[in-house]
Design a protein around this nucleic acid. Structure first.
Lengths: 246, 246
DNA sequence: AGCGGTCCTTGATCCAGGTCAAGCTTTCCG
DNA sequence: CGGAAAGCTTGACCTGGATCAAGGACCGCT
């Protein structure tokens, strides 16, 4: 409830202007987009999109964190994506969502009305190109996650998640790693379990193990301090020999 | 070794002309593409792209089947995609591959030289639009696979794989389901295990179980007959109540 | 301060799927 | 045709993570 409304601030001060779908657009193109755009604030816990429902907008995440998840008929849940600032919500060309999008923190969204946005994609190749690039990045991330889900142990999964969040948070901060990182986990144990294909008990136990091994320091339940990121990376299974990753 | 060379047949008789990246192109645009295009035949087992290496082409699969897989430093393997005719190989805008692409059958590829193809994307929105659409489809498929890897049982995984292949094969055949389907599995047990995040022993046992339960009939090791596709779909976990899927 | 709810941790036990081992079937050579 | 390799199946056993169960920590609320 403490997030300022951005209604009239617009693009010049937008924190994601260099990374979002619109990042390639020039001033004129941003004006065009402006005409189909509106800001929206959603509360933590709100469902932004429901699988199987149609939505009449697409959006960029300006601030906050959301999850994308699929639910099986018997209630099993798998998270399939984490949405951080600059990420895109919705699929142009298809109005029916294939998974739920749920805010895990309060969020500010930069929404575009679907139909006109779809038309603008045709007219303004800068948007389509950026969207293609972002979608390809997401596909790469999804495939890395498939490796995690299919082949990694519980400990490797937790280490991978912490490493990934540390990297993405650091990238948003526009600072580089110093080897030490501290951040607030934007996910509950349940969300983590659903992301990693584990139960919350196993998540909890592995956090405890990593803590006992000195790889992480927990301050409260949510704040995580990583004293040596390279040491944690060694636990992800991605890197057997201690060298640098690609 | 029995695949005819398509060198001079070209687009008019191309079996994937309505589904590939180029499917939106008009005659003139196809002529442009033609100038950067070459056909290539690869043998079963050949590695088409190696993770971490740069490739100077992108391609459409014309005939045959390939797998995309990631390997961990200690040798664990996870398949992250199955490439059937019309699917696209390579990532425009990045020459370094992030996973291996391996032919599982003999294949014919329609290759485009990377640099000029990337330029054509800028000039010809029809290609970029189709590529975006195909990439979004792949992303949806990857996320469905994440649900499978993270939350499904071994039996559900096998049933899901068979269902998926039956669907895709049927779509290629341009015939509709009659409830009965027969096809040749284009994958070894090892490839299936790597796709599903299982061991080959578990794959083998689940095949046996499904056979004993009358859900599939095996003719030799590779040919699979599904007497009642709906019954198999019930085993995928996607559908608890026997109704139709979206 | 007391109370109910949500979230997290820890322990005890179980079991699906992994591991190890043996043998079978098919293919493909010479 | 015979022999070897590759791929598949089956059995016996083991174990990592799930399940079941109990309680602890930290809210916000009255």
């Amino acid at each position: 409830m403490s997030v300022p409304l951005l209604k009239n601030e617009g693009c010049p001060t937008c924190p994601i202007r260099n990374r979002a779908v619109c990042s390639r657009c020039d001033a004129g193109e941003r004006d065009e987009l402006d005409s189909v755009k509106f800001y929206r604030t959603v509360a933590a816990g709100d469902t932004i999109v429901l699988a199987g429902q149609t939505t009449d907008f697409v959006a960029s995440v300006v601030t906050g964190v959301a999850t994308q998840e699929q639910t099986m008929p018997d209630g099993r849940v798998q998270m399939v994506g984490l949405l951080l600032p600059a990420d895109f919500i919705g699929r142009p060309g298809r109005s029916e969502a294939s998974y739920d999008v749920v805010a895990t923190t309060e969020m500010v969204l930069c929404c575009f009305r679907r139909r006109p946005f779809e038309q603008l994609i045709q007219q303004m190749p800068h948007i389509g190109q950026r969207l293609l690039e972002m979608t390809l990045d997401e596909l790469d991330a999804a495939r890395e996650w498939m490796l995690l889900l299919g082949r990694k142990t519980a400990r490797e999964k937790i280490a991978s998640l912490l490493t990934m969040i540390a990297r993405r948070m650091a990238a948003l901060d526009a600072r580089r790693f110093t080897g030490q990182v501290t951040f607030d986990l934007p996910l509950t144990r349940e969300a983590i379990a659903n992301y990693l294909g584990l139960t919350i008990e196993t998540v909890s136990r592995q956090f405890t193990n990593l803590r006992k091994d000195g790889l992480i320091v927990l301050e409260g339940k949510r704040r995580v301090h990583i004293p040596d990121l390279d040491a944690l990376i060694l636990e992800t299974g991605d890197d057997t020999d201690g060298g640098m990753l690609a």
